[in-house]
Amino acid sequence: MFELSATRLDVKRYRDAVEHHSCGALMVFEGTVRNNFDGRPVRALEYQAYPELALPVMEQITAELHRSHPKARVAIAHRTGTLALGEVSMVIAVATPHRAGCYEASRFLIEALKERLPVWKKEIFTDGDAHWKANDPDASPGPGSA
């Protein structure tokens, strides 16, 4: 299940979409709107997407995951429009036969989507300033970093 949505994401829908009796592990990753960027107060985020490419990119990244985790069941959704603090901007639900593969799959998907999904984010600060903010290609922290 791959979706872009202009309205609030129903996280349970994506969780339920991947649940299966063949899977003993299920994880849901939620990206949410944080109240600051590097300490600067954020009021809201605005997301813009390129649907004709975003949905194929979600499918492609899932196909790449299936090379190493062929039994992984995946649902991905991303919001568009203006989001208030705390709102869910992205959901990645993944179910696998065992827990190790589930952690690996969830991590693989979020990092690949951060790098390649054609979605853009505008940070709107409380002081009225706003700018389009790209993901940092080098900000893929390994275990041990915050």
Binding site: S89, M90, L113, K133
Partner: peptide
């Protein structure tokens, strides 16, 4: 043709 700035999803 679509012109794609550096992406910021997530």
């Amino acid at each position: 043709l679509a012109l794609l700035p550096p992406v910021g999803g997530g």
